[in-house]
Design a protein around this nucleic acid. Structure first.
Lengths: 256, 256
DNA sequence: CGGCAAATTGACTCCACTCAAAGGAGGTGG
DNA sequence: CCACCTCCTTTGAGTGGAGTCAATTTGCCG
């Protein structure tokens, strides 16, 4: 499947964060007052530092489901911190097949893969109505040299992404992979104070399948199997994790 | 398979880079005179900066095949830059199965996954007689705040690792995965000035299989198939890439 | 209501795994 | 130096989990 609909070729995109329409400077909501609170890069910054940080943040306008914020080849103007909604990153292989690399929830940073080579290596598209904060990477790096705890946080988040990707490389069965994704979403959603056992799957079955290297039909079948085993209850996009412990057990094959 | 042979439990390991026997300060070979030259983190440092950098580097003694330099749970004293030889990183899952996360060649940095959580997330073992430079991560980070090009290089290398891991997540056939590994090794070996078409596989078939999420037998079979197709010539650890172009074609399914 | 895409369900296929066994290669001890 | 042992690798035969193909159902939106 190709993403047909007359998309803007990436080289038509602007090359500066300030010019990218998604990341234009807007009426600010101070980082210190952001609902994400301590989930973002400002985690360990004190009041003064947070204020400093706010100066390099561009809040975006609302982004509608289906809108791209990055495309492969875009120059690394900025990385993005998800404020609300949900994104997926993906590439298209030479057979025209889409491959979903990952999902991004509020508080997570998109674009670390773009630092090497200074161009984005994946397309990133909103799955829900969303918003992001754009961060000029150069400015963040500059500021990180002044603020040790910002640099530390950057290294930490990148390191966590490396760990996460390494552990995703494991050779798991379809059930294990799906259990793992459900648990991962649960944890990440819970961090923001929402229910860890009841949430919406913003992504389609096809997106899940692509991300987990499975067929769409397998997702349906395994979710049905989980449901009849009493592990979850699922209806379209709504899932309830009935037996989170057992799901976690299924998911965590690692760490001997 | 479990790694039996009376290994030192990780908590018996020392907690400071200076105490870790692998990374004791030794007779220095200056970074500026290192055979790796511009492959290491000092890539973009000028003469003075390189000299400064040398002060935080601990060269290791020779490390024999089968020796560990990190174990899961070890505190993040230092990360390691491979000087010579070859390493693999791996975890043991709860079934006692080893899973190989990656291979490391000279010039590559081991341990970025340890920054988050400040403990190593994988075991790292030498596959050949090897040596490494130990870098106290805290010192590197401190210095990165003084030297913009060091900071840039750190971000760049971590970013590259994220990209690499993302692209490894693709759903490839056994042939594609093996072709990709061969091409990857070829490129990384060529960077150091050695032949891109003739080299040694330091790792066993089993290690390759584990890393690529395949069975050992599949590695043998596919290599045999590649050989009879005239793509490679292989004898035990020795491989010659006869038709590198066709291998690359097989490997690069990505980037549409 | 009608049209379309997403999701589900069923039947069959195939790639890679498992099980099994036979060759090498390298190391050790007598 | 050779016999022996062990581990790694290769090769063969059969199995199974997930994919493919196809048909149907469901939900969504104009």
């Amino acid at each position: 499947m190709s993403n047909a609909s007359g998309v803007i070729p990436s080289n038509a995109m602007s090359t500066l964060a300030q010019q990218n329409p998604h990341f234009r400077k807007r009426s600010q909501i101070a980082c210190s007052k952001c609902t994400l609170g301590k989930l973002c890069l400002v985690r360990n910054l004190d009041e003064d530092e947070t204020e400093q940080f706010e100066n390099i943040v561009n809040k975006s306008r609302p982004i509608h489901a289906g809108e791209h914020i990055f495309r492969i080849g875009d120059p690394l103007d900025c990385i993005a911190a998800v404020r609300a909604g949900c994104f997926k990153s993906y590439v298209i292989d030479k057979n025209g097949e889409e491959h979903v690399l990952g999902f991004y929830l509020p508080g997570e940073i998109i674009g670390f893969d773009a630092i090497d080579g200074k161009t984005h290596k994946a397309n990133v598209i909103a799955l829900d109505t969303s918003s992001v904060c754009g961060l000029s990477f150069d400015s963040v790096a500059d500021m990180a040299r002044q603020l040790p705890s910002l640099q530390e946080e950057l290294f930490r988040v990148m390191s966590a992404q490396i760990s996460e990707l390494e552990s995703n490389a494991a050779d798991l069965s379809a059930e294990e992979r799906i259990a793992r994704l459900l648990c991962s979403l649960s944890t990440r959603i819970a961090r923001r104070g929402y229910s860890p056992t009841e949430f919406n799957l913003s992504m389609s079955r096809r997106d899940i399948a692509s991300n987990l290297r499975l067929a769409t039909e397998t997702i349906s079948r395994v979710l049905a199997r989980f449901q009849s085993a009493g592990l979850i209850r699922v209806n379209r996009k709504k899932v309830e994790l009935v037996d989170l412990d057992k799901l976690r057990e299924l998911a965590h094959r690692d760490t001997g």
